[in-house]
Design a protein around this nucleic acid. Structure first.
Lengths: 353, 353
DNA sequence: AGCCGCTATAAAATCGGTTGACGATAGGGT
DNA sequence: ACCCTATCGTCAACCGATTTTATAGCGGCT
């Protein structure tokens, strides 16, 4: 398997006494191989195998204008929300024998742009953007639609753009969270909303209001705080910690808290503990996302699960379909998949006594 | 920036009335460009810029036999230990304008091998393996040394192989953990050792014994349990949970617990809580690694920090050096860097009353 | 005999860029 | 007048494949 004396198609050709063209035609099962007799094929194939011939993907791509690569732009790979998506995505692409070229934008628009260029330079056949966060989106997306590469954005929905998206049903998910608490008997509920700039914040809040209305639950605006905008996904832990502290100082009592996401909820857990309150006995907490941490905390977090790995797989399917469509000259439709969220009940919520 | 009518070097040449060779020579500042007058250079450069010319990396790589890519094999990207390393690595490579081609082996040797092939096919100039876990290493490594690509393994040290490695000083780190507890007055200390198959387990244990001996601390073998072997990095949470439960049932009292890693420690935290024990008041806990979770748990975890991002950066430096060395025909030395670990004191440890 | 079609294979063009060898011109030294 | 060198560029080969077109032998048909 050594890469020392790399064997080319010409080496194989010389070895078995045919021309490079014939070897190529045979090994690829090209249309012309119809006319090549079986024993010739056999000779070529065994020679290729014996010599350990592996076609050079660079040369192949150059000629055929097909890289067999899908670009994956991860907005921030240290975000625990991203890795499971990446896993599902990469797995599906691997099955389809596509290589994924992963670029990590570090939450920086400039890096996003430079990596985007690099990916396009490398002639990726498709592009998946794992967008957790990143407020400054619109300008970047313009670039995306302009280039002729099939694109899917996963993890976030965009209303106004003609890009395929895969995202969770935030509205329904948030409803589920609130419904869960309501059924447990909670009526005094505090909320930590997401930052306004994120579209998911609005969607989740809509779900909250929808359920509250349908159940006749009054939302007390004094118990609703909003996370500050920030680029750092890990900042929401800090924010959850701070804002929960603030809620507690206000001395407006509440028996349950709905956090924007799991990180916020984990911050809340710490703030409650610091005040000497027990979770779930004194206060129930629910998060959103079901990142890996959620199951490991003490108490483990009741949360609304985004099926991240599945979402990654779905995105892969959509790009691959789009690539196939482009191959056949027809243009791929814009797909917008909204995945149902699922309530995961763990230890952090309890029925009100 | 559309990829529609991609402009080639010949387009640029035609546009400004020179040959493709000249354009190439000028744009790359090749040795021959010495003789090209400034105004010619100017014309060519402005034409290239105006037309938005971007050289095709595939063609360039094919000709120059240099891909400007470093392969990064991640044993398991969902392991929280891996992502910060990846971050540091990718960042350093990016600065050196190398693209990192990330492959996720999913902890499966077969996948490791297939991806390795793919990376080598793509003519990566160097290879970094982020090895957290993966017991079945030796066979795979054989492949690595055989191919002529400069390789670094980060996250784990190998005694017997001639590959460059970057790893933390496990022995000293574990000593630090035990010393910390000792100074806090703890004498009855339980241990959850790592699985034997991992070399880091042995190293950490050696550090434990070394400190115990130097301090005259007796280790009670009844309070020492060992994690089962497993491929899944997240399994150590479960194991920590189970084994701590076992320790508690034995009713051999202990006031502190040293866990193999943070995940194990988090499992221990849960088990202790379930038994109604408070951390750190009733029992101190220290972990190892300082993964992102460690700071977010309640109580936050005192742990021994591996400077993962820095380790990633270091690995990048080593491969890049090796690549440069190969360029200049001299062969790169094998580097074995052992990075000092650092104790991070948080909430989970407390002085014995 | 001449032509067609089928089989089996090779030659040549192409993808887009890099690079060593060479051509042409002009100026300087002897 | 002759050679040498410094400038300024171009030509053509090459990287390693794929693909279109060409070539040649042969059997059958008219």
């Amino acid at each position: 398997m050594g890469r020392t004396g790399v064997v080319t198609i010409r080496d194989v050709a010389r070895e078995c006494g045919y021309s490079a063209s014939t070897v190529s035609i045979v090994l690829n099962g090209a249309p012309l191989s119809r006319y090549i007799p079986a024993d010739t094929k056999g000779r070529i194939e065994t020679a290729a195998k014996r010599m350990g011939y592996r076609p050079n993907p660079l040369a192949r791509s150059l000629r055929s204008q097909r890289s067999n690569i899908v670009g994956v732009m991860v907005i921030d790979i240290t975000d625990p929300f991203c890795t499971p998506i990446l896993r599902g995505l990469e797995n599906a692409l691997y099955q389809a024998s596509y290589l994924s070229l992963i670029a990590d934008a570090h939450n920086e628009p400039h890096r996003f742009e430079r990596y985007l260029e690099m990916l396009l330079d490398r002639r990726v056949e498709g592009l998946v953007v794992i967008a957790n966060w990143l407020v400054t989106d619109i300008k970047l997306l313009a670039d995306l639609t302009e280039c002729q590469v099939p694109t899917v954005i996963v993890g976030r929905s965009f209303e106004n753009h003609s890009v395929s998206t895969v995202s969770v049903d935030n509205e329904n998910g948030a409803s589920l969270a609130l419904e869960h608490l309501y059924r447990l008997g909670h009526r005094d509920i505090a909320f930590l909303r997401g930052p306004k700039a994120l579209s998911s914040s609005g969607q989740r809040w809509k779900g909250i209001r929808a359920f509250a209305e349908s159940a006749g639950l009054r939302l007390d605006s004094k118990k609703i705080l909003e996370l500050p905008e920030s680029l750092d996904p890990n900042s929401s832990f800090e924010a959850g910690l701070q804002l929960t502290g603030e809620l507690l100082r206000q001395a407006k009592p509440f028996t349950a808290l709905v956090a924007y996401d799991d990180m916020t909820a984990l911050g809340a857990l710490r703030a409650l503990k610091k005040k000497g309150l027990r979770v779930p006995e004194d206060c129930s907490v629910v998060g959103f996302d079901d990142v890996a941490q959620a199951g490991l905390s003490v108490p483990s977090l009741t949360t609304v699960r985004q099926p991240m790995e599945a979402m990654g797989g779905l995105s892969a399917g959509i790009v691959l379909d789009a690539i196939k469509a482009m191959d056949e000259k027809q243009d791929a439709p814009v797909v917008r998949r909204k995945i149902p969220a699922e309530l995961v009940v763990r230890e952090s919520t309890l029925a009100l006594k």
